[in-house]
Design a binder for these strands. Structure first.
Lengths: 197, 197
DNA sequence: TGATAAGTTGACACAGTGTCAATTGACACG
DNA sequence: CGTGTCAATTGACACTGTGTCAACTTATCA
């Protein structure tokens, strides 16, 4: 039955997400995932053509489970540029830890896997688009500090919000995600906001 | 002769650096390096026990060739905290592109290789220490903005200067290293400097 | 009863790292 | 002149993980 196909498929995806979260995205093999899903390694290949494809599907699955659209809604509904900016940072900052395992695995797979690299890239470009929208909103409110063009401000905001920055601050430096988010908001406001008036 | 040993060893290191630079640190195999050095793959193992060890040696070799100490001297000789901070960013910002190939390879090897992960970590901790010294200098000048403790300011500066940020801005965003350095300096001054007085 | 489709088992190709043993070739020393 | 030493070579091989293939099982639907 097709409902069983779907069931197995999502058991695999659940197992993938769980394993990657548990191991910080490192050293999780196809066989480990299969075992965690209670099926044979080969059965995984009946549903996903390659490890990269599985990882990509897992990120999509996570987006769905975590209801990405609902989380994005507040920043999209913001009435001012500043609000949009801070709400977007809020969203993304709290989203990173939830997807970190899968994201890290995808990031590491870039080394050997062209498809994984492309998928990660796509993902980051989507995030960039959120940054662009926030900066654009600020700009059309006339609140973007004059030294910035929208393009360069987008570059800068995007880079600030990259996963490795969160990873370093919360991992190596011991910051909480809450502290991370607070700093990113302050930094973004100080950097991009035109205070004159 | 021991001079020949040294000669071969450094031919390997040169080849390693060259190959990694050419390929952005990706997909360079032991055999490729051997071929580039004009010896057999096995001969590489006569000088370096593993790929990770070779990569670590290559970073040390590069530090020597590029005269790390000389480059570090200006910031160490700075007379004020602000000067120390900006000169350190100058140093590091211009150093990254020179070591990028090797650094990226080490970063990617973290996935499979424990030793590579440890080596990269060491490296980053050394960089952190430079950040700490700059922040400390600022602090003892009474110029560190009051909302920062030295530890948290060090965390923040260190994270800002991480390789992936340079990678993203110069790679994906098309910034020049000069633009990158300029922005990092501005950002650091705005963020950490106490302007009151 | 028989077709279809998911899943299982086990074998295998392939790439890349690292190991091992036997051999070559140069050079130094008595 | 012969001998020992040592870097380097060649070729074989173990190991790990991904991905493929073929034969077989099981359940469901018609």
């Amino acid at each position: 039955m097709s409902s069983e196909i779907i069931e197995t498929r999502s058991r695999i995806l659940q197992a993938t997400v769980r394993m990657l979260e548990e191991h910080g995205g490192r050293g999780v093999r196809m066989g480990d995932i299969a075992k965690a899903a209670g099926i044979s390694r080969q059965a995984v290949y009946l549903h996903f053509a390659s490890r990269a494809e599985l990882l990509v599907a897992a990120t999509r699955y996570l987006d769905e489970v975590l209801d990405l659209d609902r989380r994005l809604a507040p920043s999209r509904a913001a009435t001012s540029g500043v609000e949009r900016l801070t709400l977007y940072i809020d969203f993304w900052g709290h989203y990173i830890p939830k997807i970190y395992g899968v994201a890290k695995a995808l990031l590491l797979a870039q080394d050997t896997d062209e498809a994984a690299a492309a998928a990660w890239n796509d993902r980051m470009l989507a995030m960039r688009d959120g940054c662009r929208a926030a900066i654009e909103a600020l700009h059309s409110n006339g609140k973007l500090a004059p030294e910035w063009t929208p393009k360069r401000a987008t570059d800068a905001l995007w880079t600030m919000l990259l996963v490795p920055n969160w990873e370093n601050l919360t991992g190596e430096c011991g910051w909480s995600t809450r502290q991370y988010v607070r700093w990113m908001k302050t930094l973004a406001k100080r950097t991009f906001l035109d205070e004159s008036e």
